[in-house]
């Protein structure tokens, strides 16, 4: 309990500290799902089923960690389950006259339902959780140290963001994905199979969403239960559009959302109680405001893949 005895009285300063800490803690699932979905959407397909993949990832990650004793094996299992669900989405969508949005909604319900069913025996056990890197070692203030307890997955996401941006514009692989997304005709003319590229891109999206889900059950909040995801998966799909299909944008948007989630509790903790419900709704209000500000009736959203059904 020494932690508390030392807690410095920082007054209102705890609000920005909590928002920064919250941004780091809460943003990781958003970041992973949105980076994965970004690649899927760049290939010209939208996978709304990632909410189901996220919940399946949370469940299977927890199960893997619990059974094997290693949280990282849990993360890997969550990623593999995500790949399987991504392959299912891509497989169904490769049939003629199948709408990817409808399939996504079906898979969202399938994934959550299956996770709840298989997760029944997992509510009670405790699994080993992912370790945190104490990046706040330089500070004497316990609040700052707590806020800067950074999880390894967040760091991986942080590194992956510029890497993905670079890969999409500079590697052969990235250009193929973008070409398929912008014009399937052109890809076919060059001898690439759009279906196969989209399969790979959707599997990548599934992998990332599965890993993002495992963060929920293995780090924060760090246990499996059926109410674990409050729509993080579907929010992250929206974040991709909001981030204009740019990985750096995904990263910033995820941080923004994480911070917004932390804002409500942090303000109430310092005694700002007026409009508590409004602050709790901050992430959603933020989405609406940014979408309205960036909307235009004249031209298509910049950066949108040409083949994407929602923007076509």
């Amino acid at each position: 309990m020494s932690d508390v005895a030392l807690a410095a009285n920082l007054g209102l300063w705890t609000v920005p500290i909590a928002v920064v800490g919250g941004a780091i803690r809460v943003s990781t699932p958003f970041l992973f799902v949105s980076l994965g979905e970004l690649v899927t959407e760049k290939s010209g397909r939208i996978n709304l089923g990632l909410e189901g993949t996220l919940v399946m990832g949370a469940m299977s990650g927890f199960a893997g960690a619990w059974l094997s004793g290693s949280p990282w094996l849990g993360v890997l299992l969550a990623g593999l389950v995500g790949i399987a669900l991504g392959a299912l989405h891509a497989g169904i969508c490769s049939l003629p006259r199948v709408n990817d949005i409808a399939v996504g909604i079906a898979l969202m319900l399938f994934g959550t339902g299956l996770a709840f069913y298989l997760g029944k025996p997992l509510v009670q056990p405790k699994a080993p959780t992912l370790p945190a890197l104490p990046l706040g070692w330089w500070s004497d203030i316990p609040q700052i140290r707590a806020a800067l307890e950074v999880n390894g997955l967040f760091v991986i996401g942080l590194v992956l963001t510029p890497l993905l941006r670079w890969a999409l514009s500079n590697t052969r692989w990235g250009m193929i994905v973008r070409m398929v997304g912008d014009s399937a005709e052109a890809a076919r003319a060059l001898g690439y199979s759009p279906l196969r590229v989209r399969l790979a891109a959707t599997c990548f999206g599934g992998f990332m969403a599965g890993v993002g889900g495992s963060f929920l059950s293995l780090y924060y909040p760090g246990s499996w239960n059926e109410g674990l995801s409050s729509g993080q998966g579907i929010t992250a799909v929206a974040l991709v559009i909001f981030a204009r299909w740019n990985p750096v944008g995904c990263f910033l948007a995820s941080l923004l959302f994480g911070g917004a989630v932390a804002l409500g509790p942090a303000l109430q903790a310092v005694g700002v109680t007026a409009g508590a419900y409004l602050f709790n709704a901050a992430p959603y209000i933020l989405t609406l405001v940014i979408l309205i500000l960036s909307s235009s009736s004249r031209h298509r959203i910049a950066g949108a893949p040409g083949e994407l059904s929602v923007t076509r």
Binding site: D3, N9, A266, Q268
Partner: peptide, 15 residues
């Protein structure tokens, strides 16, 4: 769950 965890952390930060 996520908001409950955030709330608990905020309370801890308040001492």
């Amino acid at each position: 769950p996520v908001k409950e965890a955030e709330a608990t952390n905020s309370l801890a930060d308040q001492g």
